[in-house]
Structures are given as C-alpha cells and as structure tokens.
Design a protein around this nucleic acid. Structure first.
Lengths: 181, 181, 181, 181
DNA sequence: GATGAATGAGGCTTCATTCAT
DNA sequence: AATGAATGAAGCCTCATTCAT
C-alpha cells in the first residue's frame, strides 16, 4: 500500500512491492490474481479501519463537541498520516477503478454522510444549528477535512496549514461563534 | 490533455496522444522534450485560463453576491467540465511532479487565496461577515468547490450533487441565512 | 562479442545479440545494466586471456628466439582469429569509450610495453641488440603485429600477408640478419 | 567528415552534419543518395590529398633522407591531424564498407607500398640497406606510422609519444645507426 | 534549388507475468 | 508453498528520409 500511495497504480512496480514485503515476486501471484486485483484488494483492506470509526458513539454531550472530537481524531489520525494519502489515492485512481470508487462510496461515503446528516438533524432539533438546509449537504460538514488532506500532500511545504484550528473556525460558522476559552 | 486526464500520467500512451492529435508519434518530439515535460507544459497551459479569472472584478455589490457569482461561474465552468478533471489530475499527480505543485501553488493557489482573504476582510469591515477568524482560513471559503470537483468525478453517478445549491447553503453559514426568494 | 566485432557498437542490435545468445531480449538486462556497459564488460572480459600471456616466461634461450616465439603465438592466436578483431574494435571504438581505452592501456598496453622494454634492455646488455635507443620505443617491436591485425581485417583478400615471415624480417632488422636455415 | 571521424558512421546524425555544413537537412539529399553513399563519397574525397603525396619526388639525396622527410611530413600532417583520424576511421568502418576498403587499397595502399618497395630496392642496390628481404614487406617501413596514428587517438593522454623520434630510431634499424649530429 | 516540419520504422529498455525447480 | 530467472509485449524515443512550400 505504501508503494501504491507513493507512486500511484501504474508507476508502482511489483518488484518494489515484493522487496518491501520481503517475499519473492512470484509469491505475490499466490495471493493475488494480478496487479490490478491486488491494488483493489489492498485499497479495500485499507479502507476497513476507516469504516470502523463510522459506527458513531452515542452523542452524549453537545453535538458540536462530538464533531470537534471527531474532526480532531480524523485530522490527527487520517489527514496527517499515511491514511490520508489513501484518500488522495482514491481521488487519483478512482476514475480508472470504478469498482474502488463504488466500494468506497458504499462503505465509507454513504455511511459517513448518513451519520453526519443524523447528527446535523439532531443538532437542528436541539437548536444547536439554525441552518436547517445544512442537513441536505452533509458534505459541507466534512469539506474542510478533504481540503486538509489535499493541502497536506500538495502545499504543506509552501504554507503549513493548521487543520484543527481551521476546522474549529468552520464549526464556529455552523454552530455560531463560541466564546474563546 | 484529455488523455492525461482520463488515464493519469503513467498510464497515458504517446501513441494515443499522437493519434488523438492527428500527428505521428515523432511529431510530438518537435514540440516537447519528452513525455514528462509535455505533461508539465500542458498542465501549465491548462491553468492559464483559470489564472485569468483571478484578477478579481471590483466588488461593486455585496460581497456575498460577488462570491455567489464566482461560485456559480466556477462550478459551471470548472467543476462540471473537463477543467475540473485537471484539478483532480493535479491532486493525483502533484506529489510525483513537485514542479507542477509548485507552479500551481504559485500561480493559482496563493493568488486565489489572497483574493479570497481580501474579500473576507472587506466583508468583515462592512459587517457582512461576523466571524473575523475566517480571514485566517480562506481555504474554508472554497472548500465546497473542492468537494464538488472530487464528488463529480467519483460519486456523481451514485448520488448527484447540486453543487451550486450546496455552495449557497455554505454562504448562508458564512454570511447568515438569507431570506428565501 | 561476435556481433559487436562484426558491426561495431552503434550498429549492433540487442535483438541480434539475444537471438545469438539464445535468450530473450529482456534476459540481457538481468546481466547488464544497458548496452553500453555490456559492451564495456565484454571488451574487458575478452582482454583477460591476452593479459594472461603477458606474464613473461623467463628468457631461457636467446632473446630473439623468445620474441620470435611470442610473435608466432600472437599472430597465430590473435591476429588471425576473432581476438584480432577485438583489437581492431578497440581501435575503432576507443575514442568514444574512454574508459575502455583507459582500461586497455592500463591492463594490456603499459604492461606489455614494460615487458618488451625489459627484454630489449636485456638483449642490449647481452649484446644481441646494438641499437640502444630501441629501449625508448618498445612500440617499434610490436608495430608489425599491429600492422598485421589491421591488414588481415581490411586487405587480406586483396593481397594476403605472411605475417610471421614479416615479423621474422622485422627481427632481422633489430637483431641483425640471421643466416638462413 | 569531422562528424563521421568523431562519432563513427552509425552514431553520426545527419542533423549534426547539416548544422555543421550550414544547410538544411533536406539539402543533403540534393547531393547524396543517402547517408551511406555520403559517407563513402566523403571518405573517397578525403583520401585524394593523401594520394597526391604518393607521386614521389625523384630521390635526389640518400634514400634515408627521403624517407626521413616523408616520415616527418606524414607524422606532422597526417598522424597528428584530423587526417590521421580518417585513417583510423577507415580501420574502424572498413569491414562494414568493403567498397571503401577496396578503394583505399587501390588508391592509397597498393600505390604507396609499390613506391616504398621501389625505394627499398633502390636503397638495396645502392648499398644503403643490407636486408634484401625488406623489399618483400614494405609494410614494415610504414608500420611505425600506423602505430603512431593509433597511439595518438587512444593513448596520447596516458603517455605522449614522440613519433618522429620513434621513426628515426626505426630508420636506424633499417639503415644502420647513424652517428648522432 | 533550398527548406525544415513531418513521418514512422526501428532500437533500447521496462516490467507484469509465468513456470521449472 | 516459495522462488526468481526468464520471457516478450509494449512503451518511449531517435533519426534517416520525404515532400509540400
């Protein structure tokens, strides 16, 4: 997966994968049909941990706190790490691997957005969020996370981005400005 | 460019490019040093029209109207079209073509964000925007556009996204809800 | 090596080498980095047997007999055979492969000439050779061998050359005419 | 010719020849049928001046003086200069261009050797040379010149060679040692 | 006559895949 | 089950040659 993330599907060599895995090239073919199916299986496998996170904890405190915690976790454990590159990899290779895009949509996106929408509706019901239409576009809630992932991999060295702080400001826009601690 | 957008850098064949361009393979080398520099030049060339747009029009009316117009233009002429794929292409290949990422940051991102920040500060000064910290993260302003571009190329067929309406809701979050027409 | 000798470096095709070697084209690259390093390694390898000969035998009989034996061996086993073509190949490609010329000078030429010089000085000390200055130009001793190699590959079919007899006459010039047997 | 000499036939590009000649690439084909015939014609043309020298002046003084003058001229105007490289070029490409080798043999070698033989026989008749068999191998007379040409292009930078002095020693071997001036 | 842009055959090299060991 | 040498299809690139201008 590291190799695919670093170079993309086409530019990755099975030689390198084998060396990195500490096996011979032929051994790969005992586990995978070919390079393409290996790529697809690896992506699927890599996505699973993301899926795990989506079984949201029950919203005990305020929705905003839940979201802020979620955002912090996502940014620290995904956007900043190798997992964030997997997201970028899916963006990059998705159009050529529709099955991967399908799988990703089914397992991650649709569930994640459903969860977001539920949270938003709960927050609206509780009066934490005033903008009722936000429930129609749960993508807006996670948009800064996407931006953070892209920014990290392309522009971080030109201009570092404090993704957590950015997300906090984003939540201020949604929930109303919070008095600074 | 179509070929590169469709397949990515490594998987694109010069044979196909030549056929699509209606020239022989050798002819390519009268114009470009090699595949890599052709890719870089094409990306640069493709970006130029985007850059032109960034010389912002003078904010005559309300900032929100300016941004809404800008968003509509961007989504209709970039996110929906082949140009949006170029943005995706840069996200995909940027890490392996640092020069392209550099160029893109210098010519598009830094200028665009500077323009956004100026607009945000103007809006804050005029009282249109209350969240002063937004000026520190102009990325937040365009985040829905990025999401739209990615969504279009990966998930549109699973779940169409009304990007313009999404952007309108986003602006409501920033400027406060506008009374429905 | 046969292919390189027959066609020269640039005109030799890896296709032909592979076919001649009875392997696939790709197999070549398991053993050599590229065409150039293959050429260089082959030349080096081909020279090794020549180098072996240069560890001179102890001059038991007269120096002239030693040289006549050496010349006979050289002409029969080098000038006449495929190895002679390697000498011609080095003359032909040397200027474009400085490393080969360097290697050849270091391993063959400088050692061979040192050996020749030692023999000449010994012969002078013994009174077999009167021309003391010959020791400054050991190249003169082997000049007919070079001429023989070149002649064989270019003009043999126009006018055969008895290289051994020529060398004998050459030795007569150096050692004084020997009474015919 | 400079291009061919520097790189050999196969590695020389018509692009470079055209640029050096100050004409367009297509223009070459108004004068030559193809690269091969151009090479052959150029070699032939380049050889002509060599041929001119062979119409020997009548041997007025001693044969040895004639030869020493000839050698000095040859080494200064051929071995040291670009013309010497042409000799090397013929050695290099001769086997693949039999017509050139033929032409060279006919126009230069056979005539040159005939002239040498005549000189040798004259010197024998005059008593300047004692070794009668030398007349059978006029190649021996010019062998040091060949060695000088090869040495210059391959090993000069490792160990400079005083070709004229070497030739003088060679003549000493043939004519008997001359008292030093 | 001269040009030089265009061509496309052909060469070098890579790398996914196979298979005898 | 694991290996890794061997394969050969396929891609990039060069350059001799052509031909419309």
């Amino acid at each position: 997966m590291d190799e695919f993330v670093t170079r993309g599907f086409a530019a990755t060599r099975l030689d390198d994968i084998a060396r990195r895995a500490g096996v011979a090239k032929g051994t790969i073919y005992l586990h995978f049909k070919d390079k393409e199916s290996m790529f697809e299986e690896l992506i699927r496998t890599a996505i699973v941990p993301l899926v795990g996170r989506l079984h949201a904890p029950p919203p005990s405190g305020s929705i905003r706190d839940v979201l802020e915690g979620f955002a912090r976790t996502f940014i620290q454990e995904v956007a900043t790490t190798r997992r964030g590159d997997i997201v970028r990899l899916i963006i990059a290779e998705g159009p050529r691997f529709p099955e991967i895009a399908d799988f990703y949509y089914r397992e991650v996106i649709s569930r994640g957005l459903a969860g977001m929408r539920a949270l938003i509706e709960l927050a609206i019901a509780r009066g934490e969020i005033r903008q009722r239409e936000l429930a129609n576009f749960p993508q807006l809630l996670v948009a800064p996370a996407i931006v953070a992932v892209v920014w990290k991999s392309l522009f971080e060295r030109h201009c570092p981005l404090d993704a957590i702080e950015m997300f906090r400001v984003h939540l201020d826009l949604i929930f109303g400005e919070r008095s600074k601690p």
